[in-house]
Amino acid sequence: MAKVEAMMPWKDVPLGGTILEPGNARKFKTGDWRSKIRPVTDKEKCIKCGMCWIFCPDMAYTHREDGYFDWNGDYCKGCGICAKECPKDAITMVAEEE
């Protein structure tokens, strides 16, 4: 499991476990329990449409300045939604080694 940074005494926990820092889910790296497959994009086929970025439920894609999308293994679970939604079949799910 990813390291938890909220090991505070109960009196210091924000009311009702509320998270006061927006977007801190990015600190919680969950990619280590990915199914042993990951997406690989063929840049020859990619049309930079961003469907992988839109559909990814774990925000594992980031938009690059040149228009392509980078994959981020810190969050990807290997669900394959990006490969399924890619209109150009540019994304292939490949097996990862242990």
């Binding site: 499991m1 938890v4 909220a6 090991m7 505070m8 005494p9 109960w10 009196k11 926990v13 924000p14 009311l15 009702g16 476990g17 509320t18 998270i19 006061l20 927006p22 919680f28």
Partner: peptide, 19 residues
């Protein structure tokens, strides 16, 4: 902005319940 009702792993769950 804050997030309410978020995830609470075993390391933090008991502290919220204690509160």
């Amino acid at each position: 902005p804050v997030s309410m009702g978020a995830f609470g792993s075993p390391e933090v769950f008991i502290e919220v319940k204690k509160q």
